[in-house]
Each structure stands twice: as C-alpha cells, then as structure tokens.
C-alpha cells in the first residue's frame, strides 16, 4: 500500500514508541481566516495530526461545546469549499496530516468524486464522516481511496464483533474508537468502556487505533499513553477557542494546552 502522510505518521510513532496526539478543531471557528494560525499553534505544541471539522447545521454526534463551535463557523460563512481552501493554506507551510471530520450531507452535496479530487489537490489526507455507516459507504470508500485519501471510520463500545470487523475492513490510515456511548464532550475520567473496545479492536486489525470522546485532560493522556496509537482531543480545544476567541493570546493558550497533553503522553 502507498505511503500516505497518515501511515507515515503512525510508522514514525511506532518507531519512536510514542502515543500520538490528534487535535480536533472546527474549521472556520471563530472565522475561516483564523484557522491556519490556530492549527500552526497546535502543531507547535506537539499535535501530530489535525482533524479539521467541517461545520454542519445538525451535528447529532456532538455535545454543546462543539455545537457552539459549529454555529460560530457557519455564522462566519464557512463551507466545505472554504475548508478546502483553509487546508491548502495550512499545507503551504506544514506537512502535518489533515483529516476532514464532518457529516455526510455536505459531502453528498459536494459529490464524493469531486470532494476526493479537490481534497487531495488541497493537501487533505483522509476523511471521516460521522453518520456514514460502513453499510452505506461502498461508493464513498472507492472514490475517496482512488484519490489516495484515507477513509477513517468510527468503532463504538456498542459495536458487535461483526461490526468491528467491518469497520476495520473499511478503514484505512487509522480507526477512530469512540471511548463511550454519547456525544463529544469533556469528561472527568476516561470511560471504563474504552479498554474492552481497545482489546477487541486490537484482536481484529493491525491498523493504528485512535481513541476519542471525553478525552480532555493531561491526566487522561497519561493514562492512555502506550495503550493506543493516538488520542483525540476535541471539545477541550474548541472550548479554549470559545473562551479566548477575542484574545491576542489564543494561539499561545492552544500551543500550551497541546504541549501539556503531548508531555503527558
């Protein structure tokens, strides 16, 4: 299989014996022109991969913090097309792997083939569509992979063994494991349902495993270090953006938070 920025990252992480840090932010929050410098700050702090959230009007898998981020991004006029431009802007200065993270409908409207072509051209490395089940994903996977992009799917604590196999089969780059039932959002503790899911998934696939949902603090990172190939932090980052949107120190805050997480891994 062809090496991609994503596969390259996980090879490097494995050889360094390190757990990676995946940072989510909603592209266009608080405004499209701000996103490249926020990504750069996260990268300086030690983020290994960026999930660029494409805002969708009805984000059913997201908790209040990301919902508000999505609302701000939509209000600022962010569209899938403008997120691709943001990606191109990031790509001019950085080789950090970029994954689009969104819902199916904006992608359907754009067209699978057109998106795969344009995303590849702008420097995107993979896509994750929260509400696209593997059963419905055949044509999407085919067209997205044809452009050399990875297709990441979700695995959940409720997934049956048969479903986990399907998720592994349709995923490339890595598998995104949802640590608990529920929507995105910060939690006090890492869910007890995470470890059984990690074990089940490990038994099925050699793909790198990332764990997200509820992971928001350096102590969570420390607890998960070595247990998965990467952790995903989203709401905690979006909350920092929300609270410091008008502050000149937003980038500094994001960089410091990423560094805290990275140092705990």
């Amino acid at each position: 299989m062809k090496s991609t920025r994503i596969s390259g990252l996980f090879e490097r992480l494995r050889s360094e014996g390190r757990t990676g840090l995946i940072a989510y932010l909603t592209a266009g929050d608080p405004a499209p022109e701000r996103t490249p410098s926020l990504v750069a700050a996260l990268e300086r702090g030690g983020a290994d991969l960026i999930e660029l959230g494409v805002p969708f009007s009805d984000p059913i898998a997201d908790g209040p913090v990301i919902q508000r981020g999505v609302e701000r991004a939509l209000k600022a006029g962010t569209t899938l097309a403008s997120v691709l431009e943001i990606a191109a802007e990031i790509r001019r200065r950085s080789e950090i792997p970029l994954v689009l993270f969104t819902y199916l409908n904006p992608v359907l409207k754009y067209g699978f083939e057109a998106l795969a072509r344009d995303a590849a051209a702008k420097g995107i490395d993979g896509c994750l569509l929260t509400d696209l089940s593997v059963e419905e994903a055949g044509r999407y996977v085919e067209m997205t992979r044809a452009q050399g992009l990875d297709t990441v799917f979700l695995a959940a604590p409720t997934s049956t063994p048969e479903r986990l196999k399907l998720v592994a089969q349709y995923s490339s780059g890595f598998v995104y494991m949802v640590s608990r039932t529920g929507v995105t959002g910060e939690r006090e503790k890492v869910s007890s349902s995470a470890q059984p899911l990690i074990n089940s998934m490990r038994a099925i696939t050699n793909l790198p495993l990332a764990l997200g949902f509820g992971i928001s603090r350096p102590e969570h990172a420390a607890e998960l270090s070595g247990k998965v190939d990467a952790i995903v932090v989203g709401s905690a980052i979006v909350r920092i953006i929300e609270q410091n949107a008008d502050s000149p120190s937003l980038e500094t805050c994001l960089e410091a938070f990423a560094r805290e997480l990275r140092n705990a891994l």
Binding site: A61, L104, L154, R163, V178
Partner: peptide, 20 residues
C-alpha cells in the same frame, strides 16, 4: 433488507447507534 425504498431510506447514523 437494509431499509432502502429504491435509493431512499437506509441507515445513516453514528456507529454507536448501529448495533441498537
């Protein structure tokens, strides 16, 4: 058997809800 009426219907939800 996957809930399609012609091209319509289907099951487009996050993975957490698929098994339920």
């Amino acid at each position: 058997d996957r809930g399609h009426f012609g091209p319509y219907g289907g099951r487009f939800v996050p993975e957490v809800l698929m098994a339920p």
